[in-house]
Each structure stands twice: as structure tokens, then as C-alpha cells.
Design a protein around this nucleic acid. Structure first.
Lengths: 187, 187
DNA sequence: TGTACATCAGTGAACGCGCGTTCACTGATGTAC
DNA sequence: TGTACATCAGTGAACGCGCGTTCACTGATGTAC
């Protein structure tokens, strides 16, 4: 059942989009090719006409998620709004659409070297983007500013991880509140 | 091949110890029963005379790792020494012996409800212990002090996750340095 | 513009593999006499 | 203290299952005439 080139390109995008969501929801290892293909409305066999292997998909998915995250940072209205949205119950629940670094940071370290490398490149891009977003426009990028950006990122990622580990809403909201208050102090 | 009760108890401990190390190194899903049993010097069949299932082992392992982490916090000499050790290249590399929350926080959320519950209890205990460790002895536990403890934990866990994601030593050490400097400011 | 045909996106059966778990069996332990 | 025997920790083959990947096949696409 051949399909028009436009349709095929759409299928490829659908596979990639589904992978980005499912990987963040369940981790790289707990998502199968068949599941991703089904989410894109295809069967598992079709997957291999678009990607050479699961590893290749992982790498493309990481690149895509990082790109979107970095773009989101660049177009963010104000950093305190970004912080509040990041440290919100909504973000805690919406793993599949949320920060790829919080969702997959622990996972990526244990994958193949190619995946770790592409994830690491993502971290570099994230730090760069955050350093730019966190400074005033006239001030030049300084090591101190970069260090502050790294601290903020660590707080956000660690905070979201902690909040997601909380089984009760009470604990979750206490963690989120403490972090939102804490972020204000350090900025 | 029956074995003395003392030997059997030793084998149980060896299974639990091996599981704690391997889970932190590879995550819950990428470690098999056979691998854990082999690390303890047994075959996979013997595993089931000590634990009813892999899930039961995961829960016991989480409890054991949390207990040790909390004890380590209570007997820590000084908090800034603890921070420096936590944010060291050694801790980045020694995943199998390091902080279970940084190693498994992202993983635990995706496991069964029983595992998530026991992990969440661990987070509560960690926050309690850290709140106690971070305050001066005369001052009573206040909500503000608890909130500061949560912020410190988020910074440590997020920072270690970021540092572990770095593929190059340069990036890793930059992240660790930025965090060690940042922790001083907020304490 | 119509027709004949090569291309190739998608299908679904099949593969080898590793997993968690079960179970009949073994033989040292430790107890009852 | 010695002996006979029930217990049970440990072994290894076997199970069902889901995984990533392959491949012969299908039939609509899009091109060559």
C-alpha cells in the first residue's frame, strides 16, 4: 500500500511526535516500536522505512525535543512566568509534553554512547539558551551569569523530579511552593 | 542444596545489596533477576526463596537505600562537606553507590503504584532529615527552614542529574563548580 | 491527456532473544528419637 | 552422642510473553512513453 510522498512525510512526523510524547511519559526502554507506530496510525513494519533503528529514533527525538525546549525559552515572555509554569502541578502531570531533561535525564545516562552524546549536546544548548534568557539584554554573557543559569536549571529539574516523586498532592504542592518561593530569592 | 540458616540470611543480604547497586547503575527495568542473583553468587531460581517478586525486591531496595541515605545525612560532619561530596566528580561516576533519588527519581515515577508509594515515603523522610540537618540545633523546625531544605535538595538532585548528562569532563566540571558556588550563596 | 509499468510506503507473519516466574528435583541441614 | 529422616535453600530446565528487527508481499503512486 504505497502512499503519496506528502502522506509519507506526514507519517514520519507523526512517528517522531508520538515518540517524543511516549518517551517522556514512559522512558526510552518502556516504549516499543509497535506502540509508537500504533500511536501514529501505522503498523510496526512501516517504522523501518522512516528510521533505521530505535536508537536512531531516540536521537532524532532528543534533538526535536531540545529544539522545542530551547525555542520555548527564547520566546518566553518573562523568566518568572516561565519558572511558575515549569513548577506547576500541570507540568508535574503532563510528563509527555513537558521538559525532556527532567523526564529523561536519568534515563539518557544509561543509554548507548550515541544517545548520551546527543543528550549532552542538548544540555549545552539548554545552558546557552538559559544564560541568554536570564540576563538583561545589554549585559554581556559572563561566567557568573552562566553559573547562575546552571543553578537555576538544576533547581528546576531537581524540583520537578522531586514533585513528580511525591505520591500525594499535599507533598507535591508543598515542594512546588517551596521552589517557587526559593527561585525568587536567587534571581 | 540446602544451606545453613546463617548462610541463607547472608545470601538474602547479598541479593539486596547487589540490587541496590545495580538498580542505581542501570535503572529498575534494565536489571534482570538473573543478573542480580549472579552478582550475589546464586542462580535466578534461588531468588524466589527470598523475595516474592521483582517488585517486592524493588520496594525493599528503595527502603534500604533511603535508610542509608537518611543515616548518612544524620551522621554528616558538616553540611558544606556533604554538599561538596555530593557535587563531586566521584559521585557523578559512582552511580551504583550514590544518591538513590538522583539515580532513580525519574524511573520510580513510571513504576507500579506500590513502588511509587514507597519512593514517595522516601522523599518525605529525606526532606525531614534534611530539614533537621540544615538547621542549627536550638532553632525549632519552621516551615521556612523546611522550604529551604527542599530547595537545597532540588539543587543537589538536579545538579547531579545535569552533571551526569554531560558527556565531556569539561562540561561536567563546569556544572559541578557552578553548583558548589551556588550552594554557598543560598545557605 | 492516456496508458503501461517501475517504484516503494505500508502490511503482517516470522525470527531470535531476554525477560520474570514456575517447578521437579537435589542434597546438606537440623531435628526427633 | 549416634542415627534416621523431614525440611527446605538452591539448581537449572522450561513456560509464556513482549521486544527489535527482517522480509516476502501488496497495491497505490508517479513517471516514461
Amino acid at each position: 500500500v504505497k502512499v503519496s510522498k506528502a502522506m509519507a512525510a506526514q507519517h514520519r512526523e507523526a512517528l517522531l511526535t508520538a515518540a517524543c510524547r511516549l518517551f517522556r511519559e514512559k522512558g526510552f526502554d518502556k516504549v516499543g516500536i509497535a506502540e509508537i507506530a500504533a500511536a501514529a496510525g501505522l503498523t510496526h513494519g512501516a517504522f523501518y522505512t522512516h528510521f533505521s533503528s530505535k536508537e536512531a529514533l531516540c536521537i532524532e527525538a532528543i534533538t526535536a525535543m531540545v529544539r522545542r525546549t530551547v525555542e520555548g525559552l527564547k520566546t518566553a515572555p518573562a523568566l518568572d512566568v516561565y519558572f511558575d509554569a515549569y513548577l506547576s502541578p500541570l507540568h508535574v502531570l503532563a510528563r509527555g509534553e513537558g521538559c525532556p531533561f527532567a523526564a529523561l535525564g536519568g534515563d539518557a545516562v544509561r543509554q548507548s554512547e550515541a544517545i548520551r552524546t546527543s543528550f549532552s549536546r542538548g544540555v549545552e544548548q539548554l545552558i546557552d539558551a538559559f544564560t541568554q534568557a536570564a540576563g538583561s539584554d545589554d549585559e554581556p554573557d559572563s561566567p557568573a551569569r552562566r553559573a547562575r543559569a546552571i543553578n537555576s536549571l538544576a533547581l528546576l529539574i531537581g524540583g520537578l523530579t522531586l514533585a513528580r516523586s511525591a505520591a500525594s498532592e499535599g507533598l507535591r504542592d508543598e515542594i512546588l511552593s517551596a521552589l517557587r518561593a526559593g527561585v525568587l530569592d536567587s534571581s
